[in-house]
Design a protein around this nucleic acid. Sequence first.
DNA 1: ATATAACTGGACATCTTTGTCTAGTTATCC
DNA 2: GGATAACTAGACAAAGATGTCCAGTTATAT
Lengths: 162, 162
Amino acid sequence: MFSTTTEYALRSVVLLAMRRGTPQTAQQIAAETKVPIDYLFKVLQSLSRAGLVQAQRGKNGGFSLLNDPADISIYDVVQAVDPIKRIAKCPLGIKEHGVRLCSLHRKLDDAVRHIEEAFSSTKLADLIDDSSPIRPLCAGDVIAPTKVKLLSTGRDLHAKPI
Amino acid sequence: MFSTTTEYALRSVVLLAMRRGTPQTAQQIAAETKVPIDYLFKVLQSLSRAGLVQAQRGKNGGFSLLNDPADISIYDVVQAVDPIKRIAKCPLGIKEHGVRLCSLHRKLDDAVRHIEEAFSSTKLADLIDDSSPIRPLCAGDVIAPTKVKLLSTGRDLHAKPI
DNA sequence: ATATAACTGGACATCTTTGTCTAGTTATCC
DNA sequence: GGATAACTAGACAAAGATGTCCAGTTATAT
């Protein structure tokens, strides 16, 4: 129903909203969102071009939200990476009816419109302020300790024992 | 938002609903729905395997609906060719939370559920009984009159004039 | 029975989405 | 100002969706 890319983008911005104030490196985001890091870069670049996130290079760099989580909607994120398209005119290309839709396409477009509305009215702040004990991304405690730990101990696998 | 295959399937069953009683050949369906005929066969095969349409071979054959248009929903058609999948559990694969969803995925799943409901409650009969002057497929008057007329008058092009 | 209309099935081609790799460039810290 | 952390960009690979082709099989009409 929604693309993988959309799912990845949403996970990322939700994480950035939860960590507002501290730039998150792609490494960190990838670990917590379980998004393949090389693909994540592309998703973040789309978000960056759309003006939703900011990238900072070099040490202590990373990605951060440009606006307040209360001002960023799910819709904004979706449109940045994989835009929802309304059905504006008859897909069969009949000119005669102008922009009026037949019952089938009107019904389909209604469904799309409802999604649009639901996504527009939900802000990132709504997601992270949620009272549920189940936090978005369900992360922090469970994910990616192994790989990160390996990297951080930094032992070269080919190094001779001393 | 919805796949091309879904769109094609819906166009086809709506046509079959409008022509209920007379099997429609793939030729006819392709002409009126503007679906590439070779691909249409595959879509119709999916609908056939799902028990929505029936295929009849040989002369005077074609495809027809198996059930009453009042008993076939948009949802039935969609599920037959490109199923809508609800989010049943955390896509990040966290076991700890069982089937409870975090706020993000609950929101996304709500959207999917609404689509499901809207599509389930809309029957093919609703689409063709619509009072709007704009008929589904916008067809009949504009599309494919030439080819259909040629076929339906049935004159053999090679027949000698009497 | 034979010709013909029509669907079936599988192979193949193309395009888009998703994912991976590698060689850059920029910023920070010491 | 050099080392290193981090993002950027573009090429490439794999998989899935879409579209095309063709050699079958089945049913009907005559």
